[in-house]
Nucleic acid binder design. Structure first.
Length: 493
RNA sequence: GAGCCGUUAGCUCAAUAGGUAGAGCAACUGACUCUUAAUCAGUAGGUUGCAGGUUCGAUUCCUGCACGGCUCACCA
């Protein structure tokens, strides 16, 4: 506890005085009958006259966020889970003793009150308090009422203060909750089953990110936090779950930026007897229905620009995008050394022995991705950078895969799943050969998964969607930290 | 990991040729029975992120460190 601070000392003294007087500052037996939102909904439209005939009184509870004193009366702003409501405390009504007690309350305290609705001279729906109780004493002053809390570090470290002081922040997280709910509805309605798969993996797989390591004591076993649930979800497909989804937390031990948090939320879903083409259609449906229901339309403001989600979304092949969007010389598609030259020219650092596909992917990231503002499916990715995707029937150099980009960022990644176990083994091995420097940390041969595949997997399409980034779009948030309650920060000293 | 920027009262911010650190809100005392950032009068509140250095004197100049932000790098 911050003992030095005088403001806190004052409040602790108040707390002690209350206790001495036999007042429990933290009772838990107050029952509410209504919330601020319910009061506004029912009585908001009523005139002063109509309100006068409402005999009922209401019990509400919440945190005091503002007090305006007038000698023998006071206005209080009470904040509860769905809004704020004004309460009017009058000495004449609540009695002298109770009014003195009221004067000792602080902004930040929780109170429960019983009162009747009326409308003030200025028209605000208000509760005329008949009686009230202290429900929870607060010992710290709240952030300033007008400017709110802007210190970004405090906003993240003490998110509860951010939520109290900045109403828009709470709205972002309510939107996030709604997104999750809509996703569940969407898939449940289509006969998908929600599943949960391990977060502790003996072998990290499903993506090539660096994993977090941990250790299980009883088994004396090294474990990794999952970088993706993909390989476990496919095991379930093999086991007969033809339609599944998981809303999952995954973990990647990499850099932190406005688009990356070490733990993040993904939606992954799998649909048997479908291909990546149907996945694209489903993705449009999912995003558009969410935008309609949550945002109320398909045009989203995005950092001063507008994103138009009206389907169908543009589809363009990976290689074509390099030329048409990236403005690169077509010769790089045919000639790997030219591609490498171009990458070097652009100042890209290439890994030793990077494959042609890898180099093209780097060029894509540099020259194409930032320009994909409106929703765009990039399809036909090079096989060598897509180890889990099914090869295209006409051209085995590319796979039946797409990635969705909106606002210059990857939002989703989907493909027809590779269900040929021998091909899958080859691809894994090739990956290991090409990136030996990473074999220690992120690439292992998952024999257990290959065994499962060898039993036979139905033709299936799967997709992963970055929920955090989608919520960023829906709420026009510039940083992923704005849509994650507690983003990872270095600990304070 | 690199570069740039930031860190002053509980909160939001001021303060330069280097010269006793200020305001609003919050708090405290008083006035006030319809306010909406209520108003009015008064009071108190500071190890200027931390540690060094230069100087008679450092919030200010220099060095290092800590934490944060942005950009880049790493990376889907």
């Amino acid at each position: 506890m911050d003992e030095a601070n005088e403001l806190i000392q004052q409040r602790i003294r108040k707390l002690e005085t209350l206790k001495q007087e036999g007042v429990n500052p933290y009772p838990n037996n107050f029952k509410t009958t209504h919330t601020s939102g319910e009061i506004f909904q029912t009585y908001g439209p009523m005139s002063q006259e109509e309100l006068r005939s409402v005999g009922e009184s209401f019990c509400l509870a919440g945190r005091i966020v503002a007090i305006r004193n007038f000698g023998k009366a006071s206005f209080v702003q009470l904040k509860d889970r769905n809004g704020k409501i004004q309460a009017y405390f009058q000495k004449e009504i609540i009695g002298e003793e109770k009014f003195r007690f009221f004067k000792r309350l602080d902004i930040g305290d929780f109170i429960g009150l019983e009162g009747k609705v009326f409308r003030t001279k200025t028209g605000e729906l208000t509760l005329q308090v008949q009686t009230f109780r202290l429900l929870g004493k607060s010992l710290h002053p709240l952030p300033e009422k007008w400017h709110g809390l802007t210190d970004i570090e405090i906003r993240y470290r003490q998110r509860y203060l951010d939520l109290i002081a900045n109403p828009k922040v709470k709205e972002i997280f309510l939107t996030r909750a709604l997104v999750i709910q809509r996703i569940r509805d969407f898939f449940n309605r289509r006969g998908f089953c929600e599943v949960e798969t391990p977060m502790l993996h003996p072998i990290p797989g499903g993506a090539t990110a660096k994993p977090f390591r941990t250790h299980h004591n009883a088994l004396d076993m090294e474990l990794f936090l999952r970088v993706a649930p993909e390989l476990y979800l496919k095991r379930l497909v093999i086991g007969g779950f033809e339609r599944i989804f998981e809303i999952n937390r995954s973990f990647r031990n990499e850099g932190i930026s406005t688009l990356h948090n070490p733990e993040f939320t993904m939606l992954e879903f799998y649909l048997s007897y479908a291909t990546y083409i149907e996945m694209m259609e489903m993705t449009e449906e999912l995003f558009c229905s969410m935008a309609e229901e949550i945002h109320g339309g398909l045009r989203l403001p995005s950092q001063g620009r507008e994103i138009d989600l009206t389907p169908p979304w543009r589809r363009i092949r990976f290689k074509d995008s390099l030329i048409e969007v990236g403005g690169l010389d077509p010769v790089i598609l045919k000639d790997p050394s030219k591609a490498t030259e171009m990458a070097v020219e652009l100042g890209l650092e290439l890994k030793k022995g990077a494959s042609h596909g890898r180099v093209l992917a780097d060029l894509f990231k540099e020259r194409v991705e930032p320009h994909l503002l409106q929703p765009t499916f990039i399809t036909h990715y090079p096989t060598e950078i897509s180890p889990l995707s099914r090869k295209n029937e006409e051209d085995p150099e590319v796979v039946d895969r797409f990635e969705l980009f909106i606002a210059g960022r990857e939002i989703a990644n989907g493909f027809s799943e590779l269900n040929d176990p021998l091909d899958q083994r080859e691809r894994f091995l090739r990956q290991l050969r090409e990136r030996p420097e990473e074999a220690d940390s992120s690439l292992f041969l998952d024999e257990d998964f290959l065994l499962a595949l060898e039993y036979g997997m139905p033709p299936t399409a799967g997709e992963g969607i970055g929920i955090d980034r989608w919520v960023m779009l829906l709420t026009d948030s510039p940083s992923i930290r704005d849509v994650i309650f507690f983003p990872l920060l270095r600990p304070e000293k």
